[in-house]
Write a protein that binds this DNA or RNA. Structure first.
Lengths: 188, 188
DNA sequence: TGTGAATTTGGGCAAACGCCCAAGGCGGTC
DNA sequence: GACCGCCTTGGGCGTTTGCCCAAATTCACA
């Protein structure tokens, strides 16, 4: 299996990123240590600081990559729905699937919080969230919803908030909120 | 100023709790250390583990106390409003005041996140949030809003989500969202 | 088969961590 | 004034942390 050093390096870097994504959700942003992520990736501890300047840098890259992909997938799913009502139903259903204690939900929450302490992360995350809100607003506007920007901001915030609350109250029936949420789509 | 040992102890404990509240917002849950909180409170490091079993215990007590008071104040303010529309306006205005990077907002966010790793904290926080949602639902129901429970859940989630998003995008005009949010209050 | 650049190894370092504890105040009670 | 219980002090213990680095390894290429 011929393999150049560069390719091996790239593959190792990728393994570190994947290990970091998994661990942020499992043990939290501050729980991910040099040695832990190295062990999970199956490499020696020193490798971490060869590929990344610091642990924080690794975590930043890993979390941003994950959030970017997640947002892209949501946007794609929404664009497939025939109307905003169907989109809202799907959205609430998707949020309901995440109990709030799954690694994906936790990673997103951890990233939000960590972004308050890491300027670089905050700026990049802000771009992503802003882009998502714009996508949402554009999609709403295309279906005749009034005040699409404001409704998009409310929906985006509600989604993130629901993930947090669902964790605290697993009995919360998120999917059932789609009905009242539809009121946001109606005209004056 | 005659003062018994018990009174002095109580005062010190209170100082530690206040210092912890301030520091959680400033440096984050995991950034609060034994020595840091002791220095802020103006006491020797050993005092922390005399009054509290562990640092986590101190942080749990401090954050829960703060959130409890905050929720109580919000509920009180809402009950003073003549109708849900006015309440919503006040609520959004209050959220808008918090830029998301103030200690209070950060403390709430930190507490949410920490609660995913500390069962004791999660249970107590869940009680508080559930209570707030019930207060909100009761207030909405009293004004003839349909599906008060669902609307309360959506509003509570949106508030927390907006605090997070406002931090990422300081340009977000939260107060302006009150208009579209009113649609949630209307009858079918 | 040798050379060199990229990658990997694993131990080492200083700093910071939570928690502990013997010793020392500091009032209120006899 | 001696005692007693509560509170406070500040240093110490063992552990873990991020990051470093000289040496070893790997593989394409000469």
């Amino acid at each position: 299996m011929p393999e150049t050093s560069l390719e091996r390096g790239r593959a190792t870097r990728e393994r570190l990123l994947r290990a970091a994504v998994a661990l942020i959700g499992e043990v939290g942003w501050n729980g991910v240590t040099t040695r832990l992520v190295a062990e999970r990736a199956g490499v020696a501890p020193g490798v971490v600081h060869y590929h990344f300047g610091s642990v924080a840098e690794l975590l930043t890259a890993a979390s941003l990559g994950f959030v970017r992909e997640l947002i892209g997938q949501i946007g794609e799913e929404l664009s497939r729905r025939p109307d905003p009502e169907a989109g809202l139903d799907w959205l609430m259903g998707a949020v309901a699937v995440y109990a709030g204690d799954d690694p994906a939900s936790l990673l997103v929450a951890e990233t939000y919080l960590a972004s308050t302490r890491i300027p670089e992360l905050r700026d990049r995350l802000a771009e992503l969230v802003l882009g998502f809100r714009r996508t949402l607003a554009h999609w709403l506007a295309g279906h005749g919803v009034e005040d699409p920007d404001a409704v998009a901001a409310l929906l985006a915030a509600a989604i993130d908030g629901l993930v947090l609350h669902h964790r605290l109250d697993p009995g919360l029936d998120v999917a059932a909120l789609a009905g009242p949420a539809r009121r946001l789509l109606r005209k004056e």
